[in-house]
Each structure stands twice: as C-alpha cells, then as structure tokens.
C-alpha cells in the first residue's frame, strides 16, 4: 500500500470519526475536543491535496481561533447544567431520515459524475500561487471579507456585552 493512500484513509477517519463524535457527545467540552480532532483530519487532507497554505491556516484559524472561542463560551455559560437534559430533539428520526434521503440522492448523483481529466498545478510554490490569485483576481472580495470581519467583531462585542 502506497503511503498516500494510507494517509488519506488515516486523515479521513480522523475527520469523519471526530465529526461523528462531535455531534454525539453529551458534554460540550468533549464535543469540542472531538471537533478539534476532526478539523485536524481536514487539515491533513489539505496537506495531501498540496494546499500547504490552507493546512497552516486551518490549524491556526480553526483550532487556534474558533475552537478556542467555543471553549471560552462553553466555560462562560456553564453548559454542564444542561447535561442531564435530553440531548436530541424529539423529532430527531425525521431529521436523520431526511438527511439520509438527501445523502443517498447526492451519492447517486456523484457516482454518475464524469470529471474532466485532471490538470497539473503550476510549478510555483503553493503560497505564491494563492497569494497571486488572492491579491490579483480576488482583491475586492478580499477587502470585503475584511469589512465583514470588522462588522462581525463589532457585532459580537455589541451582542455579548452586559447591558449597562
């Protein structure tokens, strides 16, 4: 077995297994840790796909940023109080069934897909490539994204602060 294949299945099982654990855990803290595993798996997949920049971003932003935020909030709101409650919605079979239906349809569709022949990435390094595309072709969306983040920062501060 080729090393690539081994790593693909390893990372895939990390990503999917972590995801499954994340949505089934009773404790929010456990769920967050499972999510971290899943995100690490996704990061590994990026590496296999030769997206080194995204690999680093994934680890820094998701695991360093978003997940930490989740943990902070979990600590703040003392979620363990709700631990004894029912964890799943009373209509959960309906949700699962609908999701399964959509999954089957999508899987069938994907199995019929015919992709064009793959192309080779340019030989330049990945970071240069991403930078060129981002700052030449997608400069305006990039600036808009910064604005979005600014709004999100202001908005979340406004939402979360204590009323005077």
């Amino acid at each position: 077995m080729n090393l690539d294949v081994f790593f693909f299945y390893a990372f895939t099982s990390l990503a999917l297994g972590g995801g499954l654990l994340a949505i089934t855990r009773r404790s929010a803290v456990h769920a967050a840790i499972a999510l971290m595993v899943s995100l690490l798996g996704v990061a590994g997949l990026y590496l296999l796909l030769q997206a080194e920049f995204l690999f680093v971003s994934q680890i820094i932003v998701y695991i360093g940023g978003i997940l930490l935020l989740f943990l902070f909030v979990i600590m703040l709101v003392n979620l363990d109080a709700g631990k004894g409650l029912r964890q799943f919605h009373k209509n959960w079979p309906l949700g699962a069934a609908v999701t399964a239906l959509a999954g089957i349809a999508l899987a069938v569709l994907l199995s019929r897909a015919q992709l064009p022949p793959p192309q080779q990435m340019p030989a330049t390094g990945n970071v240069e490539l991403v930078a060129d595309t981002l700052f030449q072709d997608y400069l305006v969306p990039f600036e808009v994204a910064s604005l979005l983040l600014l709004v999100a920062v202001v908005g979340s501060v406004l939402l979360a602060r204590k009323r005077a």
Binding site: H89, L94, A102, A105, V108
Partner: peptide
Amino acid sequence: QSYALVIVMSLAALAGWYM
C-alpha cells in the same frame, strides 16, 4: 431547526429530482 429541516428537505428534493 425546523427551518433548517426545510432547507435539507429542499436539498433532498433537488438532488432527487436531478437524480
């Protein structure tokens, strides 16, 4: 969540229709 359920239902319907 019921709104989300509607979204997923529509997704299933759309995919099913294409299928």
